[in-house]
Simulated scan of single mutants.
Amino acid sequence: MLKYRTLDTQAGPLTVVVTGTGAVRAAGFTADVADLTDLIHPSLREPLEPNDDVGPVTDHVRSYFDGDRSALEAVVVEQHNGGEYMRHAWQVMREIKPGAPVTYSEFARLSGRPAAIRAAASACARNAVAPFTPCHRVLRLDGSLGGYRWGLSVKRFLLDHEAALA
């Protein structure tokens, strides 16, 4: 059974879906858990129940928004929505430091495939556990925001929040 909770944050409502062990399977800036269910790989889908106790995720989210830029790094995530490259790219994405965004080209290089810019962008688009896997830290070559499933205003807020704490 998966548990979910919607947390109020300065960037808007953040709903998290967690396993019984506390790993985040889906997360996003929405108050509607239905927006997240399709993001969970079919092999990882289980019945959902609302629950105020989603483990230490709540404290990590609060710490992040209170100014601890590295608080989200401690959250365990569990997503499976792609092949070997996609899983590797998500791990690399988790290593992008707050306040130090990279371009899609740089992200592709860091992921080991410098020419695979579209694949790198796809890893961002298919990320099911934002902001714990911080796809918001990947920008266009000209420094503009590009896209973000949860809206460009949320992406801008997160980047500004992290830059202000640098």
Rank of each mutant, 00 (worst) to 15 (best):
R87C: 09
S105Y: 05
A11M: 06
E84Y: 08
R45P: 04
A89I: 14
R118C: 14
R109W: 02
P98W: 02
D53I: 04
V33Q: 15
M1T: 13
Y64M: 04
V33F: 06
D8F: 08
P56A: 15
R149C: 01
S63E: 02
A123E: 00
M86S: 04
R140W: 07
D142W: 09
G20A: 15
G67V: 03
R5M: 07
V77S: 00
D66V: 07
R126K: 15
A34W: 03
G83A: 14
P13H: 12
V92F: 04
T58C: 06
G82H: 03
V154C: 08
Y104W: 02
H41Q: 13
Y104K: 01
E49M: 09
E73M: 02
A116W: 11
E106P: 11
R69I: 01
A34M: 13
T21C: 04
E46W: 11
V16Y: 02
R140T: 01
L48Q: 13
S105N: 13
A125F: 12
N81C: 12
A27H: 15
E49L: 09
V33P: 04
S105T: 13
G55L: 14
A166N: 09
A108C: 13
A108K: 15
L110A: 02
R156N: 10
P13Q: 05
H88F: 10
V18N: 12
A121K: 15
H161N: 00
Y104G: 04
V138I: 08
G147R: 06
L72N: 01
G82V: 07
Q79V: 11
V138M: 11
C135E: 09
S153M: 05
V57H: 02
Q91T: 09
E84L: 13
A123S: 06
D52M: 12
D160S: 11
R140M: 04
A164I: 14
A11R: 05
V54P: 08
R156L: 14
S111D: 01
L159R: 07
H161Y: 01
A71W: 01
E78A: 10
